[in-house]
Amino acid sequence: MKTLKRLFQFISIYATALGLLWGAKIIYGFSDYLIPPPLEVLQVASQNGLHYVKAVLNTLAVAIAGHIVAIILATAVGLVGRLNTWPGNLTRTAAYNLQAYPIVAVAPIIFLFLGDGLASRLLIAAMICYFPLLLSFIGIFAKPVEEVEHFFRITGRINWRLELSIRTFENLDKITTVIVGSGTMALVGTIIAEFLAATNGIGYIIRKALYQSNLAKILIALFLIGLCSSLYLSFIETIGRWIKMRLYGTRSSPYKHI
């Protein structure tokens, strides 16, 4: 239901934007070369649709892979960053300083070293969504949930696994929101990488369309990107809800045998 709502929202926004674009074309008398008429957009869609769908799926696959890499890495580093020892302090300081740097600016260096293939796109996608994830995870893992943890601490039952379970469970909505937000960033990162130098994916197609000044192609590409992005984000939200339902329904507890 939420997926449909998200799709409907996207399609509504897209249709409104197209309406405004064509409205401006009529009012100001822009040429067909600058703003293609609806029929031309439909023709481009029927001629290139399949090719574009393949390209956007390629981009989405890279974005998802990069997103997963970033989540795993941010979780692992976040576990270190929550500690009050020197590795924890160092990780936090490094994370706070590095996140201030625009990662896209180092993308050309990545292409120089790794070429214009999959590795560069994957790395840029992962790097772009990694720091927001890391900062959120450090914040969540390091902040005690005093009302729940107090009993376990004072009775000597607390350990790092239980602490993490409590903090993760209590912040599940926040974690889902951060992961959904970073999913968009992973997609943005992949498209930027493709736009900059890659030879695959929907970003590469947009770059070519830009060189040809072909707005119809760009509009089709944007539509497919929005569609895929909506579906992917809905998928993550569904997983978040499913995990929460599973946890609320489970009868096992992580401190049973402590």
Binding site: E147, V148, S253
Partner: peptide
Amino acid sequence: VLYAHNTERIPGWDTVGTHLRSV
């Protein structure tokens, strides 16, 4: 020495019975 206060909660993943038995 134990200190209990009235804003405490039990973890949300357990039922009251499961939690009480486990502690």
